[in-house]
Write a protein that binds this DNA or RNA. Structure first.
Lengths: 209, 209
DNA sequence: CTACCTTGGATAGTACAACTATCCAATCGG
DNA sequence: CCGATTGGATAGTTGTACTATCCAAGGTAG
């Protein structure tokens, strides 16, 4: 298809597509002359992916670029690829293998999980726990164990979906699954809160007008 | 305390504190003359809260302002207060009571929860589900049920922590708990993924160098 | 008591991200 | 063959979150 059709199919304005091309987020079409190039389905999908990551997940374009790069050329092993992808997901925190994350270390020890200060998610956990403390609602042991149990169950569901044979697709699945399903989980938690509040606080308290 | 001490205690630069004062995020100190005012512990706490919401949760200041306003002056009932707070949490989506959210409606019907297009979280769920579809990994029924079960269990843990007697504290708890514990849950899910990947894919695949 | 420091208040400037708009020239297509 | 489309380049806009400077008045240490 030509540019005009790509614009129509994707719903992205021309100026923005040009911007993505310049930024290296979108591969140029196959040039068929000085003033034309043809684009394929992969361009439509790529645009949808960029928009989903920016608008729904809320990623800055620099992070989108990293994730797209990982999908196109994964790191030698899945584990490291996923680790790299996680680093750019919000809230972006760079892991410092030399640093100590005391709250995260204690929490992970408590629930029997591996503590590795080189994981970005460990730094994120530390920040989250510190923030919870700072606003006067630190995480208790009971809550921690409860969260851990159910989060682990959710992670098992996620991994069960993982296509085991095709590595490249598995990487794409892992990376996108982490990013895309996070907002869904957050929304479901919020809805669960409202559902529970409605049932427990009673119809009176739950009445919306 | 005086301004200089507030700066030291909070670690926030003077220019930024002045900016927050101007923006109405921080109440002015009690004026003791044309060029002095005294600040209290509540100012230190408020600054910590602002920083936690902006840096850890990643909220824009406009959303922080809304949340602070809800904590200071909650809406008539908890249910609506929490609803308003949820609306400003990322990814910010405004709920349109007149709109239809087919994916969210189907999903909520499937798991037996109330569907109300007036909830911002419903619009968020719709967006998330649509994004998952757009990138080629739509949510299946099995996954939906699994998520729902565990998310509901997590929400029950959250609500168990809620102080039942003091409404104002309960509101603060609900609002902050939703915002602050979301990044913690996200980090825990990512760590659970890595933990599982390490155990299932084996030490070889999990080797980090 | 006085010279310097702190403060409050106002205003302007900076930095970055993510577009958005325009211009030009080549060329494609009816 | 002539208007519309395209690629390529460049400049401008919008929004957010600060950051820096200036001024005047009031506090404060010696």
């Amino acid at each position: 298809m030509k540019m005009s059709e790509l614009l129509q199919r994707s719903g992205v304005p021309l100026a923005t597509v040009k911007y993505y091309l310049r930024a290296g987020l979108l591969a140029p079409g196959e040039s068929t002359g000085a003033t034309t190039a043809i684009y394929g389905e992969q361009h439509v999908r790529r645009l949808a992916l960029i928009r989903a990551l920016t608008e729904v997940v809320g990623l800055p374009l620099a992070s989108v670029r990293t994730i797209l790069g990982l999908i196109d050329e994964p790191a030698p092993d899945r584990f490291r690829t996923l680790g790299r992808a996680i680093e750019v997901l919000p809230p972006a925190v760079e892991a410092d293998p030399g640093a100590d994350y005391p709250r995260a270390r204690a929490a992970l020890a408590e629930i029997g999980q591996l503590y590795d200060p080189g994981y970005a998610a460990v730094a994120q956990l530390e920040r989250g726990l510190a923030a919870a403390e700072a606003v006067g609602m630190p995480m208790g042991t009971e809550r921690l164990h409860g969260y851990a149990r159910h989060v682990m169950a959710i992670a098992e569901i996620d991994l069960a979906q993982l296509p085991g044979d095709d590595t490249s697709r598995a990487v794409e699945y892992s990376v996108l699954g982490t990013a895309v399903y996070e907002p869904i989980l957050a929304a479901m938690r919020r809805l669960a809160h409202q559902d529970l509040a409605h049932r427990i606080l009673g119809p009176a308290a739950g009445d919306r007008d």
